[in-house]
Design a protein around this nucleic acid. Structure first.
Lengths: 158, 158
DNA sequence: CTACAACCTGTAGCGACTACAGGAGCAATA
DNA sequence: TATTGCTCCTGTAGTCGCTACAGGTTGTAG
């Protein structure tokens, strides 16, 4: 089986498969006489495992650990269980955060009356309430302090 | 106001502020005689706007559009509303996806009896069901086909 | 005078891919 | 046989949104 077949079978991009090989999460496969990669069913299994774990939101370092564990059937599965629990907690906190965002976005959208930007709730919601500077180049006064607020990383990582 | 003050006031990292300037989402500020950046309240407003939008999960290209709109109070706010709606939909689909993940993870975790890896549900759940190859280096037979399954990007982007 | 904090520029790193340039090999068709 | 066109190869750079660091200058307090 060559890389294209494996890609179709697993649903994992060819470039991603080569990337996985490069970072050592997939073993270097045998090569055909023409230099092309040759995969067997064990590789397909491993890749399927990786894909499923990635779909569940595990990052690649967790996947590495899970793969290593999988190959030691006699070891205790405490580590695996711990990783899964951590992942569950991470997913739960993402859901909580996104749910709050959803509410704020719903409010924004539902209150927008589709008129001019000047009275648009979407824009208005985003303008910080602290300074009263109106217009593009106002330079009035300074004001209190922002609070630390929510952690950054949302759209990318969570 | 210099960059450190702006950073404290807005809760945005100094490095991030300079990054925003580099990519042109914040204008190049005036400089003091010693070369240090000098900000006014308009900058603080703009940064506050950006931060809030980022907290709501808008990516920087959307933020750019929203900022541009904000500066044209007479324009129609359809674009802003559209962007917010798209974001709302994206958030809703992320929530839906994460909710499914949560269920699968809960099942994994709750069914793990904390014994050996060999009978660990966490690991077992991840092993693809298609090929029967057991053990690290088995090389049995080939099997049907995976379906396209779920879209990739989860932990990073969604 | 000496610390030390705060700032400066420029560049590289993160995670997990994705894309592309520039080439080789191979099968089917004209 | 030549050509087209697909799949594969390597190596490198780009994506997003930061964050970190090296190596320097400036400003302030003790």
């Amino acid at each position: 089986m060559q890389i294209g077949d494996l890609s179709r079978q697993s649903g994992v991009n060819i470039e991603t498969i080569r990337y996985y090989e490069r970072i050592g999460i997939l073993p270097k496969p045998a090569r055909q006489s023409n230099g092309r990669r040759s995969y067997g069913p064990a590789d397909a299994d491993r890749l399927g495992f990786i894909r499923h774990a990635r779909d569940l939101g595990f990052d690649l370092s967790s996947v590495r650990v899970l793969l290593a564990l999988q190959e030691q059937p006699e070891a205790s599965c405490d580590d695996a269980s711990r990783i899964a629990q951590d992942q569950l907690e991470a997913v739960e906190s993402r859901i909580a955060r996104l749910t709050k965002l959803r509410e704020e976005l719903r409010r924004m959208v539902s209150e927008c009356s589709r008129g001019r930007v000047a009275e648009c709730r979407v824009i208005e919601t985003l303008v910080p309430p602290t300074t009263g500077s109106s217009g593009p180049h106002a330079a009035y006064d300074k004001r209190p302090q922002y609070l630390p607020a929510m952690p950054r990383q949302l759209s990318r990582n969570s």
